[in-house]
Amino acid sequence: MKFRTYFDVDGVDRSGLASQVAAQHDRVHQRLGTVRRVVAIMSGKGGVGKSYCTAGIATAAAHGDRAVGVLDADLRSPTVARLLDARGPLAVDADGVRPATGIGGVRVMSSEFLLDTGRPLAWQEPEGHAFVWRGTLEAGALREFLADVVWGELDLLLIDLPPGADGVADLRTLVPDLSGIVAITIPSDESERSVSRAMRAAHEAGIPLLGVIENMSGVRCAGCDHIGPLFTGNAGKALAAEFGIPLLAQIPFDPASPDTPALWRQVLQLLLREPA
């Protein structure tokens, strides 16, 4: 049988799928037109404190009279909203969904507001074959969090990515103007290898790597105030050297430390600095 293929047929594609997808991307672009910098917080593995670091930077920004938003892209394990004391319900009007307000006026969007307490992320679904469409749906949710939330004028929008490198490519597609990524690691060698892989993926996707934060970088002795090691390894410095980027901060495992806010302010200054 002889027949023409898609691009040989000149007629209009009336499925409208391509034009609708393009319109969705335009909507993201328009919504983020009032946001000065979009920075993603990433790690190669879970449990390194991405959300804690996101909340620390956001709080420093809010206390410095900066307009800041936090988008929790970790749909399956949302934690940053609670760290910022932001709660639903979310108001909806013709312009979109109003973000919740957290500490210092930080504007927050998270699946935390949508899920019943203690329940995992779940979608209305026909029996079986969920693997076919679930990833697409979750990428769509991230797109709606970007495009349909009324972020308003922001100096900084922080995106708290889920562990691993998967979310990085989706984000790059949705936000071509992404200012860059901050990688979070703990000092261990295992974390270094895992975070390195995720950073490599981001680099290969053409996303600027802004710096590394080493979290849980030692623990302070309650008795003598000495900071001793919590993990063996030197992942922060090693990753910074490997990718030729700054080690933005080494944050000790001591959330109550009086020094920590100054470290977050230092990170913030570096993130808000316009590229040379």
Binding site: P89, L90, L114, R119, A122, A141, E144
Partner: peptide
């Protein structure tokens, strides 16, 4: 606004 999420997620009925 947020049609995809609101129409598909299984969660709080009073989220919005």
């Amino acid at each position: 606004p947020m049609e995809l999420v609101r129409g598909n997620i299984v969660g709080r009925t009073d989220a919005f």
